[in-house]
Amino acid sequence: MAPTRTPAVAGLFTEDGDPRGFRLLGTRCAACGALFFPREDDFCRDPGCTSTEFIEVALSPRGRIWSYTDCRYPPPPPYPRDQDREWEPYALLAVELKEERIVVMGQAVPGVRTEELEVGMPVELVPGVLHEDADRVLTTWHWQPERATEGTR
């Protein structure tokens, strides 16, 4: 039996086959329009607004690197990982979305090294896999640097 595909955390991005494509999902306050990611469904955080109604919105899938780092050592649980497999560091990006101008963190696609990155570099949102074993595939988002043409940088 094929392992089941489940979002690593529910409700933060579109599901497979969504007509909007792969997008992060936030919410907008129905009264004042304030935008929240991760989604806020209970209370508007604007101190001047008492609204409790929110509309789901898909966020723009492009932005620029605000900052970046990597994780050289395995994080503690609940980070899902195979304890028996050798740890492979991954790059972690904070990306300012082009339209919404909020900064959203995310792992880079596997294999990206910090040496290749720069603050201000354009990146694109892509679906990714956080963890995979015999029973389950935990899905997430990754940031894919829009690499300059090879050899020209």
Binding site: A8, P75, P76
Partner: peptide
């Protein structure tokens, strides 16, 4: 919980 679960962001 979310930052550790999704990003391993220590």
């Amino acid at each position: 919980w979310v930052r550790f679960r999704l990003l391993g962001a220590t």
